[in-house]
Write a protein that binds this DNA or RNA. Structure first.
Lengths: 222, 222
DNA sequence: CTTGTAAATTGAACACGTTCAAAAACAAGG
DNA sequence: CCTTGTTTTTGAACGTGTTCAATTTACAAG
């Protein structure tokens, strides 16, 4: 029962619409670029865009899926360059921010969509689970067999925490209007160093109870 | 040069529109309640709503201003009940969450507005500065002359950090669909305890360099 | 080549947030 | 009571995202 015959031509149309959308989003911003603009730029009728994408927001999501596919390819190379924990996390962050750099403004639209828990495209929702898990797993790969010793009981939850940390950084970056977003750069430099230090610190014998307390909070919450 | 004569009747109309809006927002949600609904409920024409409020989102902001006014009155009573740091912060949080409880869904709309750095109503923007400062100052009042000893160099920045912490909690609460939002409750219980412990811990002699490093990051960022 | 069916495409229509010129209500002075 | 200027109110109109019945196109089967 083949439900989709999807010709090559159809795939081309889809790509043309998405490309037109991204171009216009970047030129004029998400709100300013209208679906009629996008369709015209792609050389199709307005309704055609809705044949390929559920909504205007879905176009942004399609962009995100694209970057995720790209990241999947680049990831092994990026992670393989060092076994130092800090350098590895840094490499992941650089990859992500590098991908988003040209579309910083578009990220506002992405977050505005995701911030609604009821929205299917929310980063905490069901539909985005695979991508989220993949992203979290990339941090898991980064910490395993790294040179920094990580307490056993922390190993399970740390990837998720780092993912959350990354989300926070992206949020900050969105708001950062300093030239070339150098404030975000400084924040990453400073905070990442701090975090790695805290992880090392938390491995000290006396820190067991405090660590346990933190992990208890985490497990009670999810 | 009195530019606004604003009669009593006009003020009543404004209040009626805002009340209708909040009622409908709560009944049907922000997106589902249309401006035409709101106007009809208030017994005015559609355009009237735009005479008193710049936009639909502005109605949400007006609600927020209302709660802030209310909080200003309740604050002294709430803070005066104890000198214990944890209890005080807890009291502030309880006040905030108590106010928002009935309108949890509406908060999504509020955050969706605020997440856009370019939007005038963004919580980090110019227009919301007074309210933000007031909120930060409430934390400043809570830590001064509390029983917990707070390192001198930390005293300036801690209020802002706590404000950020509060924002994070509100975000979590927004996504929390557990019965009566008990997961948020647990998170507050656990994290607040942790934070107060960390503050105490950071006051230990050996922690000076780490504290300084953190403060350096903060100052480099803003 | 013809035909039947699914995929692809169209463009008018809908509901929405928002704007605005015009009308109405109101206040103050004569 | 008029007149004049300001505040308030109206409702039609605009541009938007989105839907959908209708049409055209693509292609496999006969």
């Amino acid at each position: 029962m083949t439900k989709k015959r999807t010709t090559v031509k159809a795939e081309e149309t889809r790509a043309r619409i998405l490309d037109s959308a991204l171009q216009l989003f970047r030129e004029k911003g998400f709100d300013e670029a209208t679906m009629r603009d996008i369709a015209e730029e792609a050389g199709v009728a307005t309704g055609a865009a809705y044949y390929y994408f559920r909504s205007k927001e879905d176009l942004v999501m399609a962009f995100y899926v694209r970057t995720a596919d790209e990241a999947r390819e680049l990831f092994p190379k990026v992670i393989g360059e060092s076994r130092d924990l800090q350098k590895r996390i840094r490499a992941i962050l650089d990859l992500k921010f590098g991908q988003f750099a040209r579309h910083r403004r578009l990220l506002v639209a992405l977050v505005r969509i995701g911030i609604d828990p009821a929205h299917p495209l929310s980063p905490f929702g069901k539909e985005t689970e695979p991508m989220r898990d993949e992203s979290i797993d990339s941090f898991r790969l980064a910490i395993t067999d790294s040179t920094t010793r990580i307490p056993k009981d922390l190993q399970d939850d740390l990837p998720r925490l780092l993912w959350l940390y990354q989300m926070g950084l992206i949020l900050f970056w969105m708001f950062d209007e300093s030239p070339r977003q150098q404030r975000t750069k400084k924040l990453i430099d400073g905070s990442l160093d701090l975090i790695v230090r805290l992880i090392s610190l938390s491995a000290l014998p006396l820190m067991g109870p405090l660590r346990k307390r933190m992990l208890d909070v985490l497990s009670a919450v999810e």
